[in-house]
Computed example of a mutant assay.
Amino acid sequence: ELEALSSHYALLFNRRKAKLSAEQKSVFDGKLKEVQQIFDLSNEIDAGTDSNKGKTVERGNEGSSDEMKNLHDSSVGKAAEMAAGFTNALAGLAANDIIQRTTGRLDSLHSEGVHRLSEMCCFAVSQLLTFGKSIISLANKTEEEEVDGNKVNIEWPEDVSAKAKIIRINVQTMIGYLEAVSNSFVTGISDVTEAYQASIKGVTAESPTAVPKTSVQEKASAFSEHLRADQITAIRFINSKVIPLNYAGAHTDD
Rank of each mutant, 00 (worst) to 15 (best):
Q127H: 09
A80I: 03
H72A: 09
G202P: 05
N96T: 05
L20H: 12
G77F: 01
K33Q: 14
Q100S: 11
L41M: 08
G132Q: 02
D50Q: 09
E44V: 10
A22M: 13
I154P: 04
G77T: 08
E119L: 12
S51E: 15
D107A: 09
V35A: 05
S207C: 02
E155S: 10
D73P: 04
T214C: 07
I136Q: 05
T252Y: 12
E146I: 11
A220S: 06
K151A: 13
S6E: 07
A220C: 04
S240C: 14
L90H: 08
N14G: 09
R168W: 04
T56W: 13
S108I: 02
V125S: 02
K69L: 03
D191V: 03
E225L: 13
K33R: 15
G85S: 10
E179N: 13
A47V: 00
G30H: 00
V160A: 14
Y196L: 07
Q37K: 15
V57M: 03
A162R: 12
L227S: 09
R228G: 04
A195L: 01
F28Q: 14
T187R: 10
E119P: 01
T214Q: 12
A79Q: 05
T173L: 09
T173H: 02
S190N: 14
R16N: 15
T204N: 06
E218T: 08
A164V: 14
K25G: 06
A229V: 08
D148E: 06
K151E: 10
E206N: 13
A162H: 12
M68N: 13
K19C: 12
L138W: 01
A210H: 00
N43R: 10
Q231M: 05
S51T: 11
N183S: 13
E119C: 08
K163S: 00
F237P: 10
Y9D: 03
A250N: 06
A18D: 11
V181Y: 01
T49S: 06
F86M: 00
T87D: 12
T204S: 02
V76T: 06
R16G: 15
S51Y: 10
E158D: 13
